[in-house]
C-alpha cells in the first residue's frame, strides 16, 4: 500500500476535527446551542463536494485536450465521490434543520412545508440532480470514447450549473439558512476565531478523505480497464 503523507494528514486532521470539534469551546448562541459544532461536519461535506467537483472538471477539460482515457476515469471518480459528499451534506443538513428550524409547537408537516421551500435546499437538490444526470448520461453511452467525450462536455455544464443553483439564486431569496450576505464560513470577520481553528483543518481533512476514496476508485477502474484490454487481445 502506498502510504502517502496526505493519507496520514487526512487521518490526523479528521481525528482533530472530531476531538477538537466536539470539545473545544464554541460561541453560545440561542437556538443553535451545541449544534453549531455541525459546522465542522455538515458544512465540510459541501466544501469538499465543491473541491472534488472542481478536480473532476479539471480532469474533464484535460480529457478533452488530450483524449487520454485516464482523465475520463479520474473525472468520473471525483464527480462520484463529490456527489456522495453532497448527499451526506443533504442528509446531515436535514437532521440539523429538524432540530433548529422546525417549530416544536406546530405539527411536523407545517414545519416541513416551510423547510422544503428553502431556496438553499432546492438549489442543492438541483445541483445534485444535475450531477445525477451526469452518471445516467455516462451509463447510457456504450462506446467508450464517445462516452468520455460527451460526459466531459456535460461535466463542464454541470459544474457551471453549480454556481447559479448553490451560490447565486439562494443568496437572492429570503432563507432561514445562514449565508445570505456572503460566505459566512469563509468571511474572516464573521466566523468566530475559535471555530476557524477547527473548521479549516476539518475542511482539509474531509476533502483528503474524499480524495483518498476517489483515488481508490480510479485505481480500481484502471485495473478493470487493463483487464478488459488484456481480454480483447
Amino acid at each position: 500500500m502506498q502510504f502517502h503523507w496526505w493519507k496520514i494528514a487526512a487521518i490526523a486532521l479528521l481525528t482533530y476535527a472530531v476531538v477538537g470539534g466536539l470539545l473545544l469551546p464554541v460561541p453560545e448562541l440561542s437556538q443553535l446551542g451545541e449544534t453549531i459544532r455541525n459546522l465542522y461536519y455538515h458544512v465540510c461535506m459541501w466544501f469538499s463536494m465543491m473541491i472534488l467537483f472542481t478536480v473532476s472538471i479539471v480532469h474533464s477539460v484535460k480529457y478533452l485536450r488530450t483524449g487520454d482515457l485516464n482523465h475520463d476515469i479520474k473525472a468520473e471518480s471525483f464527480a462520484g465521490v463529490g456527489t456522495y459528499m453532497g448527499l451526506l451534506g443533504y442528509a446531515t443538513g436535514a437532521i440539523w434543520a429538524s432540530y433548529t428550524w422546525a417549530d416544536p409547537n406546530n405539527p411536523a408537516y407545517a414545519s416541513f412545508g416551510s423547510i422544503m421551500r428553502e431556496p438553499k435546499l432546492i438549489g442543492a437538490a438541483i445541483a445534485l440532480l444535475v450531477y445525477g444526470a451526469y452518471f445516467i448520461l455516462r451509463s447510457s453511452v456504450t462506446d467508450m470514447d464517445q462516452r468520455a467525450r460527451v460526459s466531459a462536455v456535460y461535466n463542464i455544464f454541470a459544474y457551471a450549473m453549480l454556481f447559479p443553483s448553490i451560490w447565486i439564486i439562494p443568496r437572492l431569496l429570503p432563507s432561514l439558512h445562514p449565508g445570505q450576505e456572503g460566505n459566512p464560513a469563509l468571511n474572516f470577520n464573521d466566523i468566530d476565531s475559535r471555530m476557524r481553528m477547527v473548521f479549516y483543518p476539518a475542511v482539509l481533512g474531509w476533502t483528503l478523505l474524499g480524495t483518498w476514496i476517489a483515488t481508490l476508485l480510479v485505481r480500481y477502474k484502471q485495473l478493470n480497464e487493463k483487464k478488459w484490454n488484456a481480454h480483447e487481445k
Binding site: M1, Q2, K7, I11, L14, T15, V18, V19, L22, L23, L209, W212, I213, L216, R219, Y220, L223
Partner: peptide
C-alpha cells in the same frame, strides 16, 4: 467523542484495507 472516533477509525481502517487490496491487484 469516543463513539465518533471509533466510527471514524473503523471507516479509515476499511479504506486502508481497500487500498491494500487494490495495491495487491496492481
Amino acid at each position: 467523542v469516543a463513539v465518533v472516533l471509533t466510527i471514524l477509525f473503523g471507516l479509515i481502517a476499511y479504506v486502508i484495507r481497500l487500498d491494500r487490496k487494490v495495491s495487491r491487484l496492481e
